Computed example of a mutant assay.
Amino acid sequence: MSIDSYRFVMIPMLPVLMQATKSARTTMAEWFDCYPPRYPWMVASDYCIGDINKPNDVLSFVIIAPHDTADNICEYIAGAAPKDLKNTKNIPVGLMQYLTCEVPVTFSISFVLKRQEALLRAHLKVENMLDFVPGAIAYLEHRLEKYPAERTVEVHEEMVTRFKAFGRELASKNLNAKLARQMHLAAATSATVFNNLNLAKQPKAIRWISDRDALIARHDAVVYDLTYVYYMLQAEIHAMGEIEAGRTVPTTQADLGFEIPEQTGKHRYDEIVRLPDYLAGTLADLNNETMTLSRDKFDVVLNNVFVNSKTNWVVQLLSGEGLVTARSALFRGQHQRRQ
Rank of each mutant, 00 (worst) to 15 (best):
T248N: 10
V155L: 14
E244W: 04
T227R: 00
V153P: 02
E236C: 09
V193S: 06
G246L: 04
L233R: 04
A171V: 04
K201D: 05
R247F: 07
E154Q: 12
M232F: 07
G241Y: 03
L215C: 08
Y231A: 11
E154N: 12
V229Q: 01
Q253Y: 00
A214W: 05
R218P: 01
A235T: 10
N196E: 04
K204G: 11
M159C: 09
T152Q: 04
R212G: 07
A217E: 14
L185A: 06
Y224T: 06
E169Q: 11
T192R: 07
V193K: 00
H184Q: 08
A221Y: 14
E154M: 08
R218M: 09
V153K: 13
T161A: 15
N198E: 06
M183P: 04
E242G: 00
V222G: 01
A180C: 13
M232D: 09
Q253C: 06
L175G: 02
E158L: 15
V223N: 05
V229F: 06
V249F: 10
N198S: 12
M240I: 11
D220S: 15
G246V: 00
L179D: 06
D220A: 13
L185H: 04
A180Q: 05
V153R: 14
E157P: 06
Y231W: 10
Q253T: 08
T252I: 04
A187K: 07
R162G: 01
R181E: 03
L233E: 09
V155Q: 13
T251H: 12
I237H: 08
G167P: 01
A188E: 01
E236K: 14
Q182F: 00
M183Q: 13
A235G: 08
D225R: 05
W208H: 14
A235I: 07
T192D: 00
E236G: 02
I243A: 09
E158S: 13
I206G: 02
V223Q: 05
R181L: 08
R168T: 10
F166M: 14
